[in-house]
Amino acid sequence: MNFFEKIPKETKVSPISKELYLKGDKDVAVLILHGYTGSPHDMYYIGREINKAGFTIYIPRLSGHGTNSIDFLNSSWKDWLRKSYESYLNLKSYYEKTYVLGLSMGGVLATILAEKFEIEKVVLAAPALLTVDWRIKLTPFMKFFIKRIPKKNVQTFDDHNLDFLAKNYWNYDWPSKAADLYKLERLAVKNLGDIKSKLFVILSEKDDAVPLSVKNLIETHVHSNYDFLILKESGHVVVNDIEKETVAKETINWLLN
């Protein structure tokens, strides 16, 4: 049975997970990539703010995200990287310049694209080049035995759409998909030294998923120009948390200069 036959007939994209494309008045586009188990809705705020500054923005939905858990289980790191790659090439064919911004796994994908295509400017928001959860290193073996592990702290939301995403993604650990994330992490870290892009890296001291030691990793291995924004209060989704206005403002200023 192929992956397509496994997908439920009722599969559809959640209303808050729709892709977003907004045209700006500059001949510059920004590809914006969401994270692992996330969806475009995490990136709507910063995307719209960047668009207000004149940039065209495109927020794609990575395969298996924003639909349901079966669809997610039947996607892989190759699908996520391919979607990012195709999205970048399509934007690049229309605009004089195309930059990339990625959150978490999206930051990992952005790192891989930066090394491959020598993109002029790349924003890495809480890039999952390292992760706090040490178990990710075991997932290449765990994936053969365990599909999903219920989390102890189940999330519930009053918003029906958020609650649907929580039940299908956030309330479980997914060893096989975490193994895919780990594969992307290793690909990205391996080639950090080859990056020629200018980087703007956003990290938070209260991020419980990506450690602040990513800063040291970049300082040690990246030889191109880079700037850091270190936040004090935000959680992992730094582009849409308590300091999101600061993140958007500083990101836009960096993109414009």
Score class of each variant (00 low, 15 high):
1 M>F: 12
3 F>P: 00
6 K>V: 02
8 P>T: 08
8 P>E: 09
18 K>I: 14
18 K>L: 14
20 L>R: 10
22 L>G: 09
24 G>E: 13
26 K>N: 06
31 L>P: 03
32 I>S: 01
34 H>W: 07
39 S>T: 15
39 S>H: 15
40 P>A: 05
48 R>P: 06
48 R>K: 15
55 F>S: 08
56 T>N: 04
58 Y>E: 07
60 P>S: 11
62 L>V: 00
65 H>F: 04
66 G>A: 05
66 G>N: 12
67 T>G: 00
68 N>M: 10
68 N>F: 05
68 N>E: 04
69 S>V: 01
69 S>W: 10
69 S>T: 01
80 W>A: 03
83 K>G: 00
85 Y>G: 00
92 K>A: 11
92 K>P: 07
94 Y>L: 11
98 T>A: 10
99 Y>S: 06
101 L>R: 14
101 L>D: 07
103 L>S: 13
104 S>R: 04
106 G>W: 06
110 A>D: 07
110 A>F: 07
115 E>R: 13
118 E>F: 08
120 E>P: 09
122 V>C: 05
127 P>Q: 07
131 T>A: 12
131 T>S: 10
133 D>H: 03
135 R>Q: 13
135 R>C: 06
139 T>Y: 13
147 K>H: 13
148 R>K: 15
149 I>N: 07
151 K>E: 09
155 Q>P: 00
158 D>G: 05
161 N>Y: 15
162 L>T: 08
163 D>M: 06
166 A>L: 00
168 N>R: 08
173 D>S: 12
177 K>C: 01
179 A>P: 11
180 D>K: 03
181 L>A: 05
184 L>H: 00
185 E>L: 11
185 E>A: 03
185 E>K: 13
185 E>N: 09
189 V>A: 11
192 L>A: 05
193 G>W: 05
193 G>I: 03
194 D>W: 02
197 S>M: 03
198 K>C: 01
200 F>E: 04
203 L>Y: 04
205 E>S: 06
206 K>S: 04
208 D>K: 14
210 V>H: 00
211 P>Y: 11
211 P>F: 06
213 S>A: 06
213 S>R: 13
214 V>H: 12
215 K>M: 14
216 N>T: 14
216 N>W: 12
219 E>C: 06
220 T>P: 01
221 H>M: 09
221 H>L: 07
230 I>Q: 02
233 E>D: 12
235 G>I: 14
236 H>F: 05
236 H>V: 13
237 V>E: 05
240 N>R: 11
243 E>I: 08
243 E>F: 00
246 T>F: 00
247 V>T: 04
247 V>N: 01
248 A>C: 03
250 E>S: 09
252 I>V: 10
256 L>V: 08
